[in-house]
């Protein structure tokens, strides 16, 4: 094997996957076509725009404290996991008595609108956060507080609500008590609120309803 063949082989071995699996998918996903509602399937026509239910500027605090090492932000389709079926993870199941339609769905690429990086996450030592705002609202209601306040109390001391939780406290984002959050704590809570994903989406984005 001479040096020329060696370099040619190496270039081909490195270049092919780089072009096919990295550069081309990256370029394609950078310019996503907007998804549309279609009359036949959704009952009306229109362009789908995902609007987050809160600010995303807490993402950098989420990132720098390594939250993504223990929390994920993805609801996998059922071929890849059972996330769709776990209570309150993928959305809210239909409830005829209260007139609630099934809002459960898997994560789609439009859900990361406005983010710099998708913190899909490494492990699930803690639960997935895709719809954590729904659970926060439920648990806050039990205590008579709003979801945002519940988040702040949970961030200040995770073991107040879940005795066995191993989630680290971020009390350093507060001025001594859960009632006195610094602006970073508010931003982090707002970011967690913004992960709520039970809006109406085109059915083309939700092909595998549970």
């Amino acid at each position: 094997m001479n040096f020329k063949t060696f370099l040619l082989g190496l270039t081909a071995a490195f270049g092919l996957p780089w072009v096919l699996a990295v550069a081309i998918p990256y370029t394609q996903m950078a310019h996503l076509e907007p998804a549309r509602f279609v009359e036949a399937a959704d009952g009306f026509d229109g362009v789908y725009e995902f609007t987050r239910s809160g600010r995303t500027d807490g993402a950098s605090i989420y990132a720098s404290n390594g939250c993504a090492l223990c929390h994920t932000q993805v609801i996998r389709p059922s071929y890849a996991g059972t996330d769709m079926y776990r209570k309150d993870w993928a959305g809210v199941p239909a409830n005829a008595a209260e007139g609630i339609a099934d809002s459960r769905r898997e994560t789609n690429p439009y859900d990361f609108e406005g983010e710099k990086f998708a913190y899909v996450g490494q492990t699930r030592v803690g639960p997935d956060l895709s719809n954590v705002a729904i659970r926060a609202a439920r648990r806050g209601a039990e205590k008579g507080i709003g979801a945002e306040q519940w988040f702040l109390e949970h961030l200040y001391n995770p073991r107040d609500y879940d005795y066995n939780s191993v989630c680290p406290s971020v009390s350093f984002l507060f001025d001594g008590s859960a009632a006195k959050p610094k602006s970073d704590a508010k931003a982090l809570a707002a970011y967690l609120m913004s992960m709520r994903k039970d809006n109406v989406i085109p059915s083309s984005l939700n092909p595998r309803k549970p």
Binding site: Y26, M29, A30, P109, F112, A118, V120
Partner: peptide, 9 residues
């Protein structure tokens, strides 16, 4: 580069 957050991940 200004790519999609998911492809960055």
């Amino acid at each position: 580069l200004d790519g999609h957050p998911l492809m960055k991940a």
